[in-house]
Nucleic acid binder design. Structure first.
Lengths: 204, 204
DNA sequence: TACCCTATATACCGAACGGTATGAATAGGC
DNA sequence: GCCTATTCATACCGTTCGGTATATAGGGTA
């Protein structure tokens, strides 16, 4: 009995749906409705599978959310990591803001940011969800702060402006952007927000 | 039968709880948990009354939320209207940011902003809630924009900076502030956010 | 063909949801 | 004292929640 064969030959009845497609459907529902607002009924409907299939493939609702959040960060927040490659702190900020804007202007995706939505939605049951999102956000914040530390060392910031303060400021704008996008702001308005933020970006 | 007497002499059995205190309790629950996350059980527990009393006095959950939102705006967002009296746009922004900061630093109130929480929480049932919050926010935005229009007419803004763009920018920062406050940011961090925002505020 | 393993579909679980019917308690008006 | 009007407390309504038991269907292996 060769163990390696199990990769190409799964034993029992094969599943009739695509894992990735189903997960993408789950992501859409969580994105539209938040963790608590997403019911198993709506999830299964959008994923095109039944509840037992969902539980067998993904565990439970919380585990499914984690996997959907992974997909979200991998596919929708990719611009956040790539933005760090920009040559200056201002260019990083510009890439981040324009990336966030472009994502919110997508006509096929739900509005707002899944991370922001999930960190705000807050009944008692969703406490571990908030904690998980907070952990991931802290990681993003640390990455941006490290990049801004380099910028500060390179003398890009005015005196008295600390990198962590500027990081926090930039995140606040992006969070505000996603709030306003989720509340029905137009693309023009969101673009104005980005342009204004860039026009006041501090230079030495 | 004098109609006016009904004001001082309500006929039936008098209620045994204080309307304002009960509403304040409801506000706390909505603030902590959002509209959907606030269950009738938790509401009645915090308000110190039973469900039939709640329905008799406030209508239903949605009507109770509206009244709690009224109380919230009246007591907790008072700084937003008074800030408009400041002499310059920058002073208005400073009052708004410091007012928001001070509110988030209160140790007895929940963290975050009820309006932001309610505009994000989003199952299907909460759609009218979102609409109501959006309407009220639009009113606040209009008030701030009018004030910034005056500032622009007074020549306070750099060329090319429109008042509505700056209004949207300032709101974004305040929304980001409340998001970060609700996610466990420290007072020091929130203060840094406010100071940074003020330090980059555009002047002519 | 017989067997094993896994996915499927249906029907169901206890708990919690928002909301209410009902009857006892408590006040004013006559 | 009696009627009316309103509140209070309990128990209950139908629905939906997340999650599962059960039985059938379908593919690999021998």
């Amino acid at each position: 009995m060769n163990r390696l064969c199990t990769l190409t030959a799964p034993k029992g009845r094969p599943r009739e749906f695509d894992l990735d497609e189903a997960l993408a459907g789950a992501l859409r529902v969580f994105w539209r409705n938040g963790y608590e607002g997403a019911s198993m009924a709506e999830l299964t409907a959008e994923m095109g599978i039944t509840k037992p299939s969902l539980y067998a493939a993904f565990g439970n609702k919380e585990a499914l959310f984690h996997k959907a959040l992974d997909l979200y960060e991998r596919e929708k927040l990719a611009y956040m990591t790539s933005a760090l490659d920009a040559p200056t702190a201002r260019a990083v900020a510009e890439r981040l803001l324009r990336g966030a804007l472009q994502m919110q202007m997508s006509t096929c995706d739900p509005k707002g940011c899944l991370s922001v939505i999930s960190s705000v939605a807050c009944s008692a049951e969703a406490e571990p969800i908030k904690a998980e999102v907070a952990k991931r956000r802290a990681s993003s914040e640390a990455a941006l702060m490290k990049r801004f530390d380099e910028a500060k060392a390179a003398g890009e910031f005015p005196d008295g402006l600390e990198s962590h303060a500027l990081m926090r400021y930039l995140f606040a704008i992006m969070q505000g952007l996603s709030i306003q996008a989720g509340s029905g702001a137009t693309c023009t308005e969101l673009n104005q927000l980005v342009e204004t933020s860039l026009s006041v970006w501090p230079t030495k």
